[in-house]
Design a binder for these strands. Structure first.
Length: 282
DNA sequence: CCGTTCCTGGAT
DNA sequence: ATCCAGGAACGG
């Protein structure tokens, strides 16, 4: 599941590989992955343009081309961008192929939840509207403790898990990092936001920043589908505290970790380090 | 607020 | 054969 650290790794690799290079050909195998059609420009108008900049906001990736063209990518669950040699065979579930003057990049997505959107940078479309609703990036400069507490007042009845997954509260967190952050903050994911104390918020704020910083530094998490542009793996899974560690000993207290459902998501936690709220049944 | 929907592959 | 994985839009 590409979350902020994984999308940042992809953005960085695309930036290093293709910025300053011209798109010479485009193959669309599955047009349904394009959002906003038919009003948006047809993908073919990208041909001949040069990639100028890359940006990431939350889990959205923006590629800015010449002629004021902007390609927005959301990988959702199983979306991948893969670097290929020009003559490499087309792997299964490849939906769009970008042929640059120095190599080929394929967008593939087994479950086809991922979406691409082409627009002029001055225009507003589906993805740009979604991006405008995003909360701050989880970095020291942009995410303040005061913002978290203000958002908590707006959503007092949410569980911590739902709060962290809400992209308008903080941008870019998904199921893996929501669990990791909750564990580092020693807070049960099913605790209601309104019940958290000032000390909890301080720890939560710090945990969000430190877990995301660590995950970005490690190139994200490669548990199942996510891999880098060049096919290599991220490394966060090697230090993950709870995610995919159901039944294994807690790294702090050796208590076996428990898997349950919170906010409709698979959720792993330590029953000792993260005491469950009253009435919670695993 | 929660549940459903979109999809496919892997687990059971 | 059926269920489950979960990001985000959508409906009740």
């Amino acid at each position: 599941m590409p979350e902020l650290p994984e999308v940042e790794a992809i953005r960085s690799a695309i930036d290093r590989t293709f910025c300053g290079h011209q798109l010479i050909h485009l193959k669309v195998h599955h047009p349904d992955v394009w959002l906003g059609a038919p009003a948006t420009p047809t993908p073919d108008i990208l041909v001949g343009e040069t990639l100028l900049h890359t940006y990431r906001r939350g889990k959205y990736l923006s590629l800015i081309f010449t002629s004021q063209l902007r390609l927005i990518v959301h990988l959702r669950m199983t979306g991948q961008m893969r670097l290929r040699l020009p003559d490499d065979p087309v792997s299964t579930h490849t939906h769009v192929q970008f042929y640059f003057d120095n190599g080929r990049m394929d967008f593939r997505d087994v479950r086809r939840f991922g979406r691409l959107e082409l627009s002029r940078v001055e225009d507003t479309f589906c993805s740009t509207e979604s991006i405008e609703k995003l909360g701050p990036e989880p970095t020291l400069d942009t995410l303040t403790l005061a913002h978290l507490r203000q958002e908590a007042k707006r959503h007092p009845n949410l569980t911590l898990k739902a709060f962290l997954l809400n992209q308008s509260v903080v941008a870019g967190l998904g199921n893996i990092y929501a669990d990791e952050i909750s564990f580092v903050a020693n807070i049960h994911p099913a605790r209601r936001v309104r019940q958290l104390k000032p000390s909890d918020w301080k720890l939560l704020h710090h945990s969000i920043l430190s877990v995301i910083e660590e995950a970005v530094a490690l190139g994200g998490t490669s548990f199942s589908d996510y891999i880098h542009l060049d096919g290599s793996k991220g490394q966060y899974q090697e230090v993950a505290r709870v995610y995919t560690r159901k039944g294994q000993p807690c790294l702090e207290c050796q208590t076996p970790l428990i898997k349950t459902r919170v906010a409709g998501r698979g959720t792993v936690y330590c029953p000792n380090c993260q005491p469950a709220p009253r009435g919670f049944k695993p």
